[in-house]
């Protein structure tokens, strides 16, 4: 058998140009940087929260342990953020539809600018507005609600006399997350393919039916994504909630009384200056919980968006 000397497989490497190499390096580095920053935050939270996680129940402020300390905060955070979304998302979708499908061009443009402007207002301004303007004018409606709709747990009352209630905090949060949701959803609706809009109209759809057949399904994943962005902002919003909410109560569905659960972020902002020792570790532990929840929210959102990818408009 004749042995043939096999040539070693030739590496067919394309020479890479310096520009490509630099750009690949810069973009990879940027991507890695994000991960490093995220990991750094996580490490900081865990190490700083560790003393509180391992402390005995009596040492935690309140004296009932970490879980019972954080639970009302977590409840306040979730209920304010979720109800803010319940108000803001339908409104944002409606505004986005109006801008993209109903409004005359000039009005649509002006409205778009105004919405974007709303996104640029600092949260402390929203806090002042909520505290000084919105809170007082909700006092009368709140007492009406508790009188007539008191059987709904949300409006059980007794109504707060200052109006600085969870209800007002939710309204302020809803206004704050509205612009970002609207902007993302509007962008998606604007890209609804003409092709699909015409397809709907050609089989005799009215404008609303066309929106339901073409625009809404096309924008669906954007609506979810935008809602999650808004939820992230509402969960983490600190200043406005700290200013609006007079937090003194525990877990309660009651939105209009003066006993409201605080939110995690607002509680950290209010308590941190006066805390020391294990109390600081406890606050950071609550921050760790917020971090974990925000992460979970985003992952769930991603999963929801991916679930029906086959039917997505992008293919």
């Amino acid at each position: 058998m004749a042995s043939t000397t096999e040539a070693p497989p030739r590496k067919n490497r394309v020479p890479r140009r310096p520009g490509d190499r630099i750009f690949a390096g810069v973009s990879t580095g940027s991507g890695v940087l994000i991960l490093v920053a995220l990991a750094g935050v996580a490490v900081f939270l865990v190490t700083e929260a560790w003393p509180a996680l391992t402390a005995s129940a009596e040492e935690i402020p309140g004296g009932e342990g970490l879980v019972l300390y954080i639970w009302p905060l977590l409840f306040g955070t979730l209920i304010s953020a979720v109800l803010a979304l319940v108000i803001a998302v339908p409104l944002a979708v409606a505004i986005a539809l109006f801008i993209t499908h109903y409004a005359p061009r000039s009005i649509a443009r002006a409205l778009g600018y105004i919405i974007d402007l709303l996104a640029a207002v600092p949260s402390i301004i929203f806090g002042l507005w909520g505290m000084n303007v919105l809170a007082p004018i909700t006092v009368d409606p709140a007492s009406w609600l508790s009188e007539h709709l008191g059987w709904i747990p949300f409006f059980a009352g007794p109504p707060s006399s200052t109006g600085r209630t969870m209800f007002v905090a939710i309204l302020v949060l809803a206004v704050m997350v509205l612009p970002i949701i609207t902007a993302v959803v509007r962008e998606a609706f604007m890209q609804t393919p003409q092709l699909h809009q015409e397809a709907a109209l050609a089989i005799g759809a009215t404008r609303w039916e066309m929106i339901r057949m073409a625009a809404l399904p096309f924008g669906r994943s954007s609506i979810i994504g935008a809602s999650m962005l808004g939820l992230g902002r509402a969960l983490g919003e600190t200043m406005a909630v700290a200013m609006v909410l007079s937090a003194s109560g525990g877990v309660s569905l009651n939105l209009i009384s003066s006993d409201n659960p605080p939110t995690i972020a607002a509680n950290i902002a209010l308590q941190f200056p006066e805390s020391s020792g294990i109390a600081i570790n406890t606050l950071i532990a609550s921050g760790l919980v917020l971090f974990a929840i925000t992460l979970a929210v985003n992952m769930i959102a991603r999963a929801v968006i991916n679930r029906r990818k086959d039917f997505d408009g992008a293919n």
């Binding site: 393919p193 699909h196 015409e198 397809a199 050609a202 089989i203 057949m213 073409a214 669906r220 039917f311």
Partner: peptide
């Protein structure tokens, strides 16, 4: 448009709907 149907240059089935739902789309409107 319900009496005069139209087919376009580029095929434009609704991408978010199944084959069945695409055909049924107009029926559901009427």
């Amino acid at each position: 448009r319900r009496q005069i149907g139209m087919v376009f240059q580029r095929a434009n089935p609704f991408p978010t709907m199944s084959i069945y739902d695409n055909v049924a789309a107009g029926l559901k409107l009427n």
